[in-house]
Design a protein around this nucleic acid. Structure first.
Lengths: 155, 155
DNA sequence: AATCGACTTCGAGCATGCTCGAAATCCTAG
DNA sequence: CTAGGATTTCGAGCATGCTCGAAGTCGATT
């Protein structure tokens, strides 16, 4: 997963320049790489199209930066790009679909809750295995652990 | 992640045939696809090399099946293929390196614990966002949620 | 012997989310 | 005007863990 510098994320800081920031500045202020900024745009995560200069360079406004930060937060919860895109589309569609947005969030919440249960179970499993090892080692019983030539009780 | 039919995994069941099972049978009894069985072998997850017939077909013995089941259990905990390979190598090296195996397991445990903390945090974040939405909707305040044309307080 | 399904190896493809490189363009300083 | 850094787009590459397809082989049955 993309690691976003948490110290850079929360507040995009006001865009001083009159007509928006360069992509490099936007990257610096959001904690997202320029590559990823472009990727997010291509992937359709952007609500309001980022403006361009006459020469075709992106100009990020405060609004854009804020939205990107929201995206990074959603990504940080493991929300897949596709889901964020759907969410962005809903937001872009304007007011009136808040229930749908909420449903999207709740669906993601369910995924995360399921993941949580899974990881908890994993931890339980691995702990069990470690316990077996510790027990055997403490008992000087290590030779009862699995060996290629002699299948034994423990793994 | 590979989904292993949990009803098929636990006990490989005795290998009736005199000289081991075909890969199809092994797949059926371990709940792993034939493709994946071959992949695991290529990936070096196997402790004892799976035997071959004169014609080059794999013959799985009970020992092999048991080890594969162990591999599936480790995979089920999210242990990466590389780590399982290292573990298999240690086991293949025979007795005497149990401390190293334990260290490997503990390292993985740490990963899983970290993952757990992360997912818990994610759940917290998404719950917070959902709360905001619920609150706005209940208060008939939905228009204070984010809209492309008018950056607002909530997302 | 011929057939036909199961099996072999090797390499490619898929999904995800970036990450990077190439070639061309922009723009700003000197 | 020119150099050189920043940006652009497009497409490829990377890591992971399978999953699949092609082309050829094995082997049991008829």
């Amino acid at each position: 997963m993309l690691e976003v510098d948490s110290r850079a994320v929360p507040e995009p800081a006001p865009p001083d320049p009159q007509e928006g920031l360069s992509i490099a500045e936007a990257a610096r202020r959001t904690g997202v790489s320029v590559h990823t900024l472009r990727y997010y745009e291509r992937a359709g995560l952007v609500v309001t199209p980022v403006g361009r200069t006459a020469g075709g360079r992106r100009r990020y406004r405060l609004l854009d930066l804020k939205w990107i930060v929201i995206c990074t937060k959603m990504r940080a919860t493991g929300m897949p790009i596709k889901a964020i895109r759907r969410y962005a589309q809903l937001v872009a569609a304007g007011a009136g679909n808040e229930q749908e947005r909420l449903a999207l969030l709740e669906a993601h919440r369910a995924e995360v809750a399921a993941k949580l249960a899974e990881v908890q179970e994993n931890l339980r499993l691995i702990d069990h295995k470690i316990d077996v090892y510790r027990g055997r080692l403490a008992a000087g019983d290590a030779d009862r652990l699995w060996a290629p030539s002699r299948p034994a009780g423990a793994h």
